[in-house]
Design a protein around this nucleic acid. Structure first.
Lengths: 195, 195
DNA sequence: GAATGTTTAGACCGATCGGTCTACCCTGTC
DNA sequence: GACAGGGTAGACCGATCGGTCTAAACATTC
């Protein structure tokens, strides 16, 4: 029963290659070679390269949101502080040497066709992320959790885009300072501003 | 002396194709066919596809910033109001049927290699845009024009990213409301909030 | 040990990639 | 009308694209 394991190895390899080179630039042959997986194994598990792209994006979605939530929860207990801790996790993300932007924004950029299935995963990822921020905002007692979540999402995506383009080191810090204004504006008091 | 004209036609066609399909997905042959230009004309004017990409990005940079400045200046005279008018122009941009995100962020996403020349144009575009916002902020009497410009750039790039992914119609409006908070926080009073 | 089913390597397919080259055409100049 | 130069179409190149297929190697189970 090695079939499932092979599939996982393949999806992992594909995800890494898509992150490093982009969806079009990462060829199937290179993905397979790096995974040490035969071509037929790919096409037994997926109908086409698009299927592999979808699986890779879904894996990225799960991991990214889990990693974000874990980081936030490890850094602060107070809901208000957790809203700001989001940007400390972002800072760690931007600083990692293999950071190359938000893969879902990149996917939307590489597949401008509105009907491409990858865009659905991207939309869903952003929706789930915003729902998570909204939950934190609601628990923190925001006057308008929806509005605060939308505003923080603007900062998150903006910071990710700017970090992708010019990789500045203090972008997450700028975004955090901006987020504090929004959070305070919602009547939320957070314990310690942290470093 | 049709050489320069041919070049312009070619760059225009390339720009349109890159916007519509992305840099990797837009093949040379298709660009040339749509431009009605021979292959040798391309390679007489540019060393490679990368050269064409650079020229297209530079053209996009000039047009984008000129279009933005024109829109801002047409919508408001007061410097404070102009800062907010930025987001009305953005709204128009997002609503256009051929909108497909910020081409420079997409370029950075498609060319993750830090040394790729396209990234230089992208960095420069963001730098010039931020300088323009900073100029408006300074004229409006912002306490810290640099900080305000950085914050508004976060909102601009964030709004563009979100508009690219899920094309929501009210993203620019959300960003404008958020921008108002930053602008007011800098001690800037603007005449009329507009529609 | 035979049988079953998955995974393997790799040949193979047509299409397209970015890029080169040739040979002809068109246009302007004298 | 001869000439020159930039432009044209399109053949051509090796490489790679996504995808199919075959045959051997492998492990599992009985």
């Amino acid at each position: 029963m090695e079939r499932l394991a092979r599939r996982e190895v393949l999806v992992d390899s594909a995800l890494r290659m898509f992150e490093r080179h982009g969806f079009h630039a990462a060829g199937i042959d290179r993905i397979l070679a790096r995974a040490g997986v035969a071509k037929m194994t790919l096409y037994k598990n997926f109908a086409s390269k698009d299927g592999l792209i979808l699986a890779a994006l879904r894996r990225r979605d799960e991991r990214m949101r889990a990693w974000l939530a874990r980081g936030v929860e490890a850094r602060a207990r107070d809901p208000g502080a957790r809203l700001l801790a989001l940007f400390d996790v972002l800072d760690e993300w931007f600083a990692s040497d293999d950071f190359c932007g938000c893969l879902f924004v990149r996917a939307a950029g590489e597949f401008p066709d509105r009907g491409h299935p990858a865009r659905g995963v991207a939309v869903e990822h952003k929706r789930l992320l915003q729902a998570y921020v909204r939950k934190l905002a609601a628990r923190a007692g925001a006057r308008d959790p929806d509005r605060l979540a939308r505003r923080l999402m603007l900062l998150i995506d903006g910071a990710a885009a700017r970090a992708l383009v010019d990789g500045g080191a203090d972008i997450a810090r700028d975004a955090k300072a901006a987020a504090e204004i929004f959070v305070r504006g919602e009547g939320i008091a957070f314990s310690s501003p942290e470093a």
